[in-house]
Measured scan of single mutants.
Amino acid sequence: NMTTNERRVIVPADPTLWSTDHVRQWLEWAVKEYGLPDVNILLFQNIDGKELCKMTKDDFQRLTPSYNADILLSHLHYLRE
Rank of each mutant, 00 (worst) to 15 (best):
71 I>S: 06
79 L>N: 04
63 L>M: 11
75 H>G: 06
30 A>D: 00
70 D>S: 07
35 G>F: 04
10 I>W: 08
23 V>T: 05
58 D>T: 08
58 D>E: 14
63 L>P: 02
11 V>L: 14
76 L>K: 02
25 Q>A: 13
17 L>R: 13
70 D>W: 03
21 D>L: 07
78 Y>G: 15
54 K>V: 04
78 Y>W: 05
34 Y>L: 06
80 R>T: 04
40 N>F: 03
35 G>L: 09
75 H>E: 06
26 W>Q: 01
43 L>T: 14
36 L>T: 03
13 A>V: 11
11 V>R: 15
66 S>F: 10
81 E>H: 15
43 L>C: 14
15 P>E: 01
31 V>Q: 08
73 L>Y: 09
61 Q>N: 09
8 R>A: 08
26 W>E: 01
62 R>C: 08
45 Q>S: 11
53 C>Q: 04
46 N>Q: 06
72 L>C: 01
69 A>R: 01
78 Y>T: 15
71 I>C: 13
58 D>I: 14
9 V>K: 15
43 L>Q: 13
35 G>R: 10
80 R>Q: 14
53 C>E: 02
47 I>C: 06
35 G>T: 14
23 V>K: 00
60 F>R: 01
47 I>E: 01
21 D>G: 10
80 R>S: 07
17 L>I: 11
17 L>N: 14
4 T>M: 15
15 P>K: 00
1 N>Y: 13
7 R>D: 13
29 W>F: 07
65 P>C: 13
24 R>F: 05
61 Q>T: 15
38 D>G: 11
12 P>E: 11
55 M>N: 03
16 T>G: 10
81 E>C: 09
67 Y>V: 12
40 N>W: 02
14 D>Y: 01
40 N>R: 04
45 Q>M: 08
40 N>S: 04
6 E>S: 07
31 V>E: 06
67 Y>D: 15
51 E>D: 08
66 S>T: 07
35 G>K: 13
47 I>H: 04
78 Y>I: 13
68 N>S: 12
65 P>D: 14
33 E>N: 09
68 N>H: 08
46 N>W: 05
72 L>W: 02
46 N>A: 10
74 S>M: 07
79 L>W: 12
65 P>G: 11
39 V>C: 12
37 P>Q: 10
3 T>P: 06
37 P>I: 15
57 K>C: 04
71 I>Q: 13
29 W>I: 09
57 K>E: 11
63 L>Y: 10
63 L>C: 05
71 I>F: 04
32 K>C: 08
19 S>D: 11
8 R>I: 03
48 D>P: 04
29 W>P: 00
80 R>I: 13
74 S>Q: 08
72 L>N: 00
70 D>T: 06
73 L>N: 05
32 K>A: 07
29 W>E: 15
77 H>P: 02
22 H>C: 04
73 L>R: 10
33 E>L: 05
49 G>N: 00
29 W>N: 15
18 W>G: 00
14 D>H: 06
10 I>S: 15
25 Q>F: 08
41 I>R: 05
42 L>Q: 12
50 K>S: 09
54 K>H: 08
70 D>E: 14
2 M>P: 12
6 E>L: 12
46 N>Y: 08
2 M>W: 05
42 L>I: 07
28 E>R: 08
79 L>V: 13
28 E>F: 04
66 S>P: 13
31 V>I: 12
54 K>G: 10
46 N>I: 03
24 R>S: 11
51 E>F: 04
66 S>Y: 05
19 S>C: 04
24 R>N: 07
37 P>N: 14
5 N>K: 12
74 S>E: 11
31 V>S: 11
17 L>W: 10
71 I>T: 13
17 L>V: 12
12 P>Y: 03
24 R>C: 09
17 L>H: 13
70 D>P: 03
12 P>F: 02
13 A>C: 12
37 P>M: 12
44 F>Q: 05
20 T>L: 05
19 S>N: 11
49 G>Q: 01
12 P>V: 02
32 K>M: 12
9 V>M: 15
75 H>A: 11
26 W>S: 01
20 T>N: 08
81 E>W: 03
77 H>S: 10
54 K>Y: 07
9 V>I: 10
58 D>C: 06
76 L>W: 03
3 T>Q: 10
2 M>Y: 06
80 R>Y: 02
81 E>D: 15
25 Q>C: 11
20 T>W: 03
14 D>E: 03
2 M>Q: 13
80 R>F: 12
77 H>A: 13
50 K>W: 09
19 S>R: 06
11 V>D: 12
6 E>N: 12
1 N>P: 05
78 Y>Q: 15
21 D>I: 10
37 P>T: 14
28 E>V: 10
40 N>P: 06
66 S>G: 10
52 L>K: 01
23 V>R: 00
27 L>H: 00
71 I>R: 15
37 P>D: 10
30 A>M: 11
75 H>M: 00
79 L>Q: 11
16 T>R: 08
8 R>E: 14
31 V>Y: 02
3 T>S: 14
54 K>D: 12
14 D>R: 01
49 G>S: 01
43 L>K: 14
8 R>L: 04
45 Q>T: 06
4 T>P: 09
56 T>R: 08
77 H>I: 15
11 V>K: 13
28 E>P: 02
64 T>A: 10
72 L>I: 05
16 T>K: 09
6 E>A: 06
24 R>M: 11
23 V>L: 01
76 L>Q: 00
31 V>M: 11
22 H>L: 02
47 I>T: 04
16 T>C: 13
58 D>M: 03
13 A>I: 14
27 L>C: 02
9 V>E: 15
70 D>L: 04
75 H>W: 00
70 D>M: 04
46 N>G: 10
18 W>R: 01
7 R>K: 12
21 D>H: 08
60 F>T: 00
43 L>M: 09
81 E>N: 15
21 D>P: 02
